[in-house]
Nucleic acid binder design. Structure first.
Lengths: 346, 346
DNA sequence: TTGTACGCGTTATCAC
DNA sequence: GTGATAACGCGTACAA
């Protein structure tokens, strides 16, 4: 690291100007200043202008801490995510923040790193900071089933994204992954392909759901079930693992005509495998991934994928929690967002 | 969207328990409770335990708003980013939040969407919320050169990441991109390749810097300068644009032996171009990208790249602004973080 | 070692 | 239309 000193120094912090100062400057009371700012009571045109000038002149900033203290709301929400390195979550956050920002809310963003104890601590900290609501992206199962989240939801509106657990009474917003799998499988069949393999990670609730749908579908079609399992994972390593596993599959006696991968990483691995074996995609093998992350758009050929519409999911979550925070809507809901099959070149 | 109503309702918001309530419960004064919580004054062992029990029993949460109001700091910082869809920025945010979180700070995250007016508004809002400091990732040039940022920096510690403008007196943390370019070019030469092309976007300060270094290096090497320009961009579209441009380059009379791309998107495009033309990488063409984003790890062959160590950059920024906020370190600094050449298979 | 009383900056209440 | 004052929940100087 190189340090370059710029021998220019910045000043000391000066005393903040308060509503008091503005009142004095404009020759009115604090109350009137407050009314001008909030526009919640009639103020004479003349006074208003005087006050506005004073505000401008002193470049006055209302202190939201004081405001929040008395109003009992802060126009802030907390967003908890298990990771910042996963574009999947970034998109959700973007959706949430976009909607809430437009409504004048500012978001605390907290990275739990997938650790349930850290998640707990962060939630506590957010409550101390008097957030008006909390959105949990992919919450840790431990905290959900232990009833901790339900407890918190008694204190402040809480919304769970993609973290449903049976018997836990909460507000949920979820991807309809089942429908997504079904849509992809039906597409393959409509294209005349019925020897479909499923590529999944080892353990994850979401993989289990997908396999269940796949399994039932194949039974109905009276097709052969072929499930390839790799070590679970949602990162670059997944690609190599998937490539290896799929190469074995493609070199076996009966090569499938299509592969449905549980996420885009795996789909990329499958594509790399086909290329190495000089199997043409999509002519000889079709591949559909899951998630529509950016990586499905940069391969050659471009990958078909099931879009989970993460940004929209975030927007949906924001709208729901906004309603919970502002209206007297005290009823738990489960919202499912449909997926969208995107056919590209694979 | 499917809505499923769970006919279980959550409760109304109950009155918050205050330090007053705890004091009554424990039979002491508010002051003593405060002292137990903050451990800043001696308290008798016996009283302490009584108070702690009362806190536990009432599950008391200190109100950080009130605390911040009187202490004149909030242990919050604001982070502004031009985008959430770019892993590049996510990594920086992760670095910042990791360091600050460990120090008990919570981060407001704001997405400017690259809009300088929105950036301005968000900064204002953050100041109203009494943040202790502001970190600006890749700030809009308009706000920097207009002097707006300098003004803000008089009110609160401000740190700019990768947004250096000449003559603007601020605290900066920057990637040493120049050194990165040089390292990559020297590597090519050490491998016996000196016909190197540069692949860049049209307009961006960072591309200009890179080209300058490239240009000077090629002059010193007495090599031929070959700069390929595509429309600027940092997204999936860049890949196709780069592919097209590079295909033209590779089909020209004198094909270069190596390509240095200004980011990984472009490098992927170059790789796709080579594949389409059945030019072997790395045997017939070598490619080095920039940024070491995840996409450089999933191609086949895997891309060599210049790692800008974005997470470390964020950590560095956090440490710097922490110092600015807590110590009387009133001197502007420019910190450069070295890059790291990562040779993979291209 | 503990308690009283004031102040942080704002909005709400009530009186004029 | 306007102003005085209490209140929000906490930390801290000062007194005991």
């Amino acid at each position: 690291m190189i340090i370059e000193n710029l021998f220019y120094k910045w000043g000391d912090i000066v005393a903040r100007t308060t509503i008091q100062d503005v009142a004095k400057e404009a020759g009115v009371s604090m109350t009137t200043v407050s009314r001008v700012m909030n526009k919640n009571y009639p103020v004479a045109e003349k006074t208003r202008i005087r006050v506005e000038k004073a505000i401008e002149k002193l470049s006055f900033r209302p202190n939201m801490l004081a405001r929040g203290l008395i109003q009992n709301f802060t126009k802030t929400i907390g967003i908890l995510t298990p990771s910042l390195e996963n574009l999947f979550f970034s998109e959700v956050i973007k959706g949430i923040d976009g909607v809430m920002g437009a409504k004048g809310y500012t978001s605390f963003l907290c990275n739990t790193e997938g650790d349930w104890e850290k998640e707990k601590e962060l939630i506590d900290s957010l409550l101390n900071r008097q957030v008006d609501g909390i959105v949990l992206i992919d919450p840790r199962k431990d905290n959900v089933v232990s009833g901790f989240i339900e407890e918190i939801a008694e204190e402040v509106p809480v919304l769970l994204i993609n973290g449903h657990s049976k018997g836990i009474q909460c507000n949920y917003v979820l991807n309809d992954a089942e429908a997504g799998v079904l849509e992809a499988l039906k597409y393959f069949v409509s294209e005349g392909i019925d020897d479909i393999a499923l590529l999944r990670g080892k353990k994850s609730y979401s993989y289990d759901i997908k396999e269940e749908v796949y399994s039932q579908f194949m039974k109905e079609q009276q097709g052969v079930e072929r499930v390839v399992r790799i070590r679970d994972g949602n990162d670059a390593n997944t690609v190599d693992q998937a490539k290896e596993a799929v190469m074995a599959l493609l070199q076996s006696d009966i090569r499938p005509g299509a592969i449905l991968a549980c996420n885009d990483w795996m789909a990329v691995g499958a594509l790399n495998a086909a290329k190495t074996l000089e199997i043409k995609v999509p002519e000889e093998l079709r591949i559909i991934g899951f998630d529509n992350t950016i990586i499905s758009q940069i391969t050659d050929p471009k990958l078909s994928t099931v879009d989970q519409q993460m940004t929209r999911l975030g927007e949906l979550a924001a709208k729901r929690i906004y309603k919970m925070m502002t209206k007297d809507d005290h009823e738990n809901q489960k919202l499912f967002l449909e997926t969208k099959l995107i056919i590209r070149e694979s």
